[in-house]
Amino acid sequence: MNRLWETLIKAFSWACGIILLGAISCIIGYLFMKGAGVIRLDLIFGDTPPLDAILLKRQVLDGLFPAMAGTFFLVCFSVFTALPLGLAAGIYMSEYAGGSIRRVFSFSFDILAGIPSIVIGLFGFSIAVFLHRHFSDRIFPCLLISGLSLAFLVLPYIIRTTQLSLETLPARTRLTALALGATRFQNIRYVLVPQSLSGILSGVVLAVGRCAEDTAVIMLTGAVAMAGVPQSLLSSYEALPFYIYYISSQYTNPHELATGYGASIILLGICTFLFLAAFMIQKGLARRALYYP
C-alpha cells in the first residue's frame, strides 16, 4: 500500500468522524437556538400555578403539562406491565430453557424485537377495534391500549437484557450457592438475580426511554393533540412525542412552533437523562465487579 492511499484512508475516516459530530451538533444546536428562548416554566404550565397543575386542581390549557403527564402515565403503565413478564421470561430463557424450546423461543423473541413499532401500533389498534366490536362499544384507542402496545414493544428488550445479564455471570458465581446445597430456584432468587440486578435495571431504564420516545405506536392507539391530563385508562391522552409530531405539520403560528422546539428539548433531555442513568448503573456494576472477587 503506498503512502497516498494511507493518507486518503486516514483523511476519509477523520472526515466521517467530523461529519457525524457536525451533523449531530447541527441538529441539537439548531434545536436549542430555536427553542432555548421558550424554556421557561410557563412552557410547561402556561398560566396555571405549577403546584395547582401538579395536584390536578386546575387544567393546564396552553402548556406542555398534559402531554408530559400523559407520557408519564403511559411509561409507568407499559413498563409495569412488561417488567414482570419480561423478567420471568428472561430468567426462564437463561436458566431453564434448553434444546428446541430454547431455539424456537429465542428466534421468536428476535422476531418480536425487530417488528417495526408501527406494526405493533397497528396490532394495538386492531385489538381496540376487535374489543370495540365484540365486547364493549365504549372501548376506543386509549391510554390502556397504547400502554399495552408499548409494553409489547419493550417486552423483548427486557427479556433480552435479563437473559443476557444472567448468562454473562461468571461460572464461579453460578456454582457458589449450588455447591452449598441451593436448589435451582434458590440459586436464582438469592444469588443470580441479585448479582445481575444492575444489568437488568439498566435495561429497564433503556426500556423506559424507548417508551417515552416512541411515536409510531401511540399515534395509532389513542394519542391526540388535545385531551388534557388523562382522566382514566380508557380515555385518550396527550403525549410529548406525539405533540412534537403534531406541531411539525399542524402549527398555525410561530408561538406554537416555538412550543414544538421547547417540547423537543424537553423530550431530548428526558431521553438523555434516562440514557445516562442506564450508563451509570452499568458503570456501578463494573465497579462492583472489580471488588467482587
Binding site: R172, T176, G181, A182, V191
Partner: peptide, 15 residues
C-alpha cells in the same frame, strides 16, 4: 451438597 462441602480455588464470597 449439604453433606459434601466444597471450597474453590479463588475465594468466592457472595456480595
Amino acid at each position: 451438597r449439604r453433606s459434601v462441602g466444597m471450597v474453590f480455588q479463588t475465594p468466592n464470597p457472595l456480595s
